[in-house]
Amino acid sequence: MASDDPFLDTGLTRRATLQASAALVALPLAGATATEVGAALPAKPSGQAFDLHTTINGRPMAVEIDTRTSLLDLLRERLALTGAKKGCDHGQCGACTVHVDGQRVASCLTLAAKIDGRRVTTIEGLSDGQTLHPMQQAFIDHDALQCGYCTPGQIMAAVACVAEGNATSRERIREYMSGNICRCGAYVGIVQAIEDAAAKMERKA
């Protein structure tokens, strides 16, 4: 099938290409290798530059960004962390949810410059090596997804929902997860997964 998409023609995935290009120009700080963190794309900012120092998934890094860059675009397009998804890009769908200093935020409405000196956790930083976070496992156990596009945002929001103490009843979970839209309608499984994981996370804590 003819395609305009260069990735299809070369057999490369978009993610693999992003990661490869990221690795070539990595600017990691001490303690992290280029391929571990990914890093800046070669393009110089076309607007005004900002020298960003931040910690993403426990790894400190420095990267020069255009001041217009959103945290979501920084993660996805520069650092090859494509777990956080761009659904609406206007803070309405929750698919881009990540944690900044432990608090859940919409990364699409967060200027990347604002994470200077702060700690970001994305879905890629949630598991303990190959051991899934209890919330990730609970989403699998309860079939809490169909297409999966909203799932990284759902899981990051859900982990924060439990940490905030807002997973104390089904009603409260529904209210405090209302910023995460699931177009497939997997809400029943999502609420069950959060109830299940909340109990396990509290036992662990």
Binding site: G94, V105, A106, A160, C161, G179
Partner: peptide
Amino acid sequence: AASQQLRNM
């Protein structure tokens, strides 16, 4: 008002 994500911001 808003979602918890936006209320945090």
